[in-house]
Amino acid sequence: MTTYRDAVRTAIQTLLREDPRVFLMGEDVGRYGGPYAASKSLLKEFGEERVRDTPLCESTFVGAGIGAALGGMRPIVEVMTVNFSLLALDQIVNNAAVLRHMSGGQFEVPIAVRMATGGGKQIAAQHSHSLENWYAHVPGIKVLAPATVQDAHDMLLAAVEDPDPVFVFEHQMLYGIEGPLDTEATPPSPWKAAIRRHGTDVSLIAYGGSVHKALTAAEELGKEEVSAEVIDLRSLRPLDRDAILESVSRTHRAVVIDEAWKTGSLASEISAILAEDAFYELDAPVARVCTVEVPIPYAKHLEEAAIPQVDRIVEAAKRSVGGG
């Protein structure tokens, strides 16, 4: 068994070993070993040229990553957390996403940007955002959200190999989870959703940290004779519409779980996809379990109440099944 953190670290190590164009940069990725210890000991193996501690200038070191990618390198840029990535939004949205297009396809930006996301650690409103949907909104970039140890490894390899800018969101509550890691197996396409648990009564559609809560909810529901299917979206842009529609056309019910605020969320997007393309398949209204519309509070009971929890997922699924 391997931790999610070590899976990320193994992927970075493999990439650095195998491709001289790859380098890692970000705040505290070197001597500190990474704020989540995902790059521990890599400085020792690869040196300061390829494991670069940056100044605290998110916009400029992401921009420098974009420039280095234009210049033929394959940078892995760590932005520590999605909260700080807001300082780099200009470079991401106005440069990374558009340079291929604005240049008529002459240039490409093969950059991989990693960051932690999500709440659950009582670190309050400035350190608990889930803003993956902001990025998934933008054509020209791709967005991945590994929920498993295997995906944490495989998706980073795929992100660096990809010719387009790829953003990888690692939920901060997942770094410590353990799971099997097979570094030899051919990984499935990172751009496709996965069925993590088969079921027949309701589809629980989730990504990242929420996948595990959906799986626990599915177990609870099983005790009450409700067979829940759990879809892990994996890729947030492109979204695997076919997988969503295929699952819901079998279960006829959908609960979308998203740690973002409900308004303008990916859960909203998925609900709209179901309304557009699975309207006649639905036996109950689509339900969304999202974060309460409040900056994430510090106090433990309030934070827990704000973000999606297993009981709210169970409740929404039961309402969907019972009220169909």
Binding site: F23, T60, G63, A64, D90, Q91, N94, S103
Partner: peptide, 22 residues
Amino acid sequence: GGHAIVGGGLPIAVGLALADKM
């Protein structure tokens, strides 16, 4: 390019130079 966000080209230039140096 051709950059139309004032200041936005500077980090790109730094990155191009980083690639060359490496």
